[in-house]
Simulated scan of single mutants.
Amino acid sequence: MLMARRKIRLVWQSVLLLFWVASAQAAEQLSKDAAHKLLERVATAAKSATYSGTYVYQYGEEISTYRMIHVLDGANDAERRETLDGPPREYYRHGTQVSIYPADPQQAALDRRYTSKLFPRQLPDQPEKLLVAYGVQLLGHERVAGRDATVYQLEPLDQFRYPHRFWVDDGSNLLLKWVVLGMRREATQAFAFTDIQLGGSVDRKLLKPTRQLQAVVIESSNGVSTLAQEPNWDIKAPPAGFRLLKQTSKTLPGKNRTVIHHLYSDGVATVSIFIEPFHHRLPLGLAHQGGTHLFARQSGANLVTALGEVPAVTVEAFANVYNAR
């Protein structure tokens, strides 16, 4: 197992070194129409192509390996994926019906933050909405998992989000690699196929779950343009491009206080707002881990916390959108 992890880490280091090659190449800005068509092709390929393979996910020092299979089954697509290291986890989806392992009695639904990690479906169902906040650049050509790919980048139009670099298979338009870049253009989060089989016949027996799964609901709202509303709060418009996905209010396990949660997304990045009663022991200000930032401030008798895989300026801006009356 130790040798396997060392091998994965060496492979991943080689993957990340490719940034210096791609970064050195001149970027070509795509027109909005060309960018729209590209994003549509990539989003469609993830749902319509038949493929199976192994991919690696890295966030900070954490590296996880997954095996997956995806097929088109009549009018719906189906997929199954499982972890190859660490605690066993399994995910199965047929159309909009999703089941997971291990079972969690308290988790009856999954939101977009979870499903957005399900590589290679990084793009939202309506990818054209990304062009409100991002431009698309053509960076060059490379190979990923033995396949020829074209390298593109979602380049932010403002300071409120990170660049996202992605590699698209030349033959199928399937996403082969996706990397989130930090403010210094360092890799903060990455997904990449290490081997993949595209098209042809796939053994459908591989779709069959190997464990007892729990059915869950996917909350797949694409967001609304209306402002969030809460009694006794003045809530202004968030940074441009972010849309409200959902509003919830619940009492956290083991705590006697209600926490309000608002979830926003621009299509690839998400920001959560938490509102709860203020306590002097709760820390204020900015904190971060890797590319994830948190900003907390007091507003009246409440604590407002903004959390997301976005720059520091974004979480601070979100926290200041909320003011108690």
Rank of each mutant, 00 (worst) to 15 (best):
W178E: 09
V179N: 07
V180D: 08
L181P: 01
R184I: 05
A187I: 06
T188H: 12
T188R: 13
T188E: 15
Q189W: 01
A190L: 08
A190Y: 02
F191T: 05
A192W: 02
A192E: 08
T194W: 05
D195S: 14
D195G: 11
G199W: 04
G200M: 07
V202R: 12
D203R: 12
R204E: 14
K205D: 15
K205W: 10
L206P: 00
L206A: 14
K208I: 15
K208A: 12
K208N: 11
K208Q: 15
P209H: 03
T210P: 00
Q212N: 14
L213M: 15
A215W: 03
V216Q: 05
I218Q: 09
I218T: 10
S221P: 09
N222Q: 15
G223D: 07
V224Y: 05
L227Y: 03
L227T: 08
A228N: 03
A228R: 04
Q229N: 10
E230Y: 07
P231H: 04
P231Y: 02
N232W: 01
W233H: 03
W233P: 01
D234I: 02
D234N: 10
D234C: 01
A237L: 04
A237D: 03
P239N: 13
A240S: 10
G241R: 06
R243Q: 11
R243Y: 06
L244E: 02
L244G: 02
L244F: 01
K246W: 00
K246R: 13
Q247W: 00
T248V: 08
T248S: 12
S249F: 00
S249D: 08
K250D: 12
K250M: 08
T251R: 14
N256V: 01
R257I: 08
R257L: 10
V259R: 06
I260V: 13
I260H: 13
I260T: 13
H262G: 00
L263W: 00
S265E: 06
D266F: 06
G267K: 01
V268M: 07
V268I: 13
F274V: 00
F274S: 00
I275E: 05
I275V: 14
I275S: 04
E276Q: 12
E276Y: 04
E276S: 09
P277T: 11
P277I: 10
H280D: 15
L282D: 13
G285Q: 06
G285A: 07
Q289R: 15
G290A: 11
G291A: 13
G291Q: 10
T292L: 15
T292E: 14
R297C: 05
G300M: 03
A301H: 11
A301I: 04
N302G: 00
N302F: 13
N302Q: 14
L303M: 11
V304E: 07
T305M: 13
T305F: 06
T305D: 09
T305G: 09
T305K: 09
L307C: 02
G308N: 10
G308D: 07
E309V: 00
V310W: 03
